[in-house]
Design a protein around this nucleic acid. Structure first.
Lengths: 251, 251
DNA sequence: AAGCCGATTCCCATTCAACGGCAATCGGCG
DNA sequence: CGCCGATTGCCGTTGAATGGGAATCGGCTT
């Protein structure tokens, strides 16, 4: 599938165009998109016009381009992320009401941690995670949980690959990482101080669906020296609540 | 743009494929998608394989197809819907804490009401709205607000077109609708009893951005005979809070 | 005003990816 | 074992997509 001399399918190109948008690039000119997606100018303009026609992109008053509401709609209705989020939200709110820092829900996607929901208290500390944002599996507490319960080949792949440090305290030694993962499987929780940001500690637990398989990670980000015991209790209660909620809505 | 005898572009087809998924159709077989998207079998299989390759769709253990996390990610990061939702969520939670029914946030999209967030109390009454779901503009309270503050041609179009009844009490008379819209512009709020479901009342207010333009509607759904005064106060406070929050995050 | 530069639009000859009909194969079920 | 639907594979045809290039637009500087 590739109708171009460069050997790319239309679908690939659409994805590349959509990839040029992110949190800090909400609106772009057509030429800018073309450059960032590495498309010849005339092609970029044509593809973009096509996407606008279908509603996946929209033009603002001044012909600049942004992601369309239609894309948002198509991606969400029927997505597992939305199902999961809806089941999890009430429990996340309960955690948030007690812990009052940051509460996140993350899934495994393409060997990375993908965050699908986040609640933050107005006065909470630092936290670089964003909804629809990613972090390496070995760095974030959520990622460690997902990694510990993920498929075996995934573990091998990550342990073999280069373990880049996100902060100065990220676990980058594969032997040590192996021990951390074993600990998570044993304790059902991970406490990761400073692995993403020096000033904070991540605490994460697995979220299982009915059959026991881990489908997500629930985590909180606390100030570095805050007590973790209460957070662990809250997270465990919430995770099991989510499991029940998921089972209930799909009999 | 249309590489097929049937005169459809690849983009159109991708959208048609994505459209076949919704809340009650999370996973489908390739053949099913093909039928619902009106694509020749071999074409459907090819297009789907292509989309899976790019991560927009995913196959589960048993080769059935569902929307991919990658699609969710691409659609959300950088979307205005997410920005708006993030700004609105804390205020929606405050409303929800006091009113304890359903609290929704909606935008105008392609002449319909598109709901982008919803919080519901466990014991709350009926409510057919769903995140990423749609309702006609003239039926839901949110839609009435969006219609009242939308572009003039939109109003004319809707008033001219057939006004289908969602419930037995939906306003379908264009003269009466015109009066309702004028009332909304005058009062800054609408109370719509029974227009979506006989047992409930929708209450909605406009959400404005800094420059005063209405970009969304904030609403609650109450049991039919509940008092509306407290809800109106809460909604107004929340709407103005959202406006300030939006202004703050984008200086 | 004139000139510049980037973005956008328009044009068009080339070509190969996409198309879809058809047939073979797989796989579950009675 | 035979039926039926889903899936995969094959292949000749064809016109949509491509992208280079030129023209036009529009804002900004000199």
């Amino acid at each position: 599938m590739a109708n171009s001399p460069s050997g790319e399918s239309v679908t690939e190109r659409i994805v590349r165009v959509l990839e040029t948008f992110d949190t800090d690039r909400t609106v772009q000119t057509a030429a800018e998109i073309g450059r960032r997606a590495r498309l010849p100018s005339s092609t970029a303009h044509r593809v973009i016009a096509d996407l606008v026609e279908c509603g996946l992109l929209e033009r603002d008053e001044d012909q600049r381009v942004c992601l369309g509401m239609r894309l948002w709609e198509l991606a969400l209705r029927g997505s597992r992320a939305l199902h999961l989020r809806q089941a999890a939200l009430p429990f996340m709110e309960r955690v948030q009401a007690h812990i009052r820092e940051h509460t996140q829900l993350a899934v495994l996607e393409n060997d990375e941690t993908l965050f699908i929901e986040r609640l933050s208290h107005p006065n909470a500390g630092a936290n670089i995670t964003r909804i629809a944002g990613r972090l390496p599996l070995h760095a974030s507490s959520s990622g460690l949980v997902l990694l510990a319960h993920g498929p075996e080949e995934l573990g091998e792949r990550v342990l073999a690959g280069p373990l880049e440090a996100v902060s100065s305290e990220t676990v980058t030694d594969s032997a040590r990482l192996r021990r951390v993962l074993a600990g998570i499987r044993r304790d059902g929780v991970v406490v990761a101080p400073g692995s993403v940001e020096g000033v904070s500690t991540g605490v994460a637990v697995p979220v299982r669906e009915r059959r026991g398989q881990v489908i997500a990670a629930l985590s909180v980000v606390l100030p570095r020296e805050a007590p973790t015991r209460p957070a662990i209790e809250e997270l465990r209660a919430a995770a099991s609540g989510i499991t029940t909620a998921l089972a209930a809505q799909r009999p």
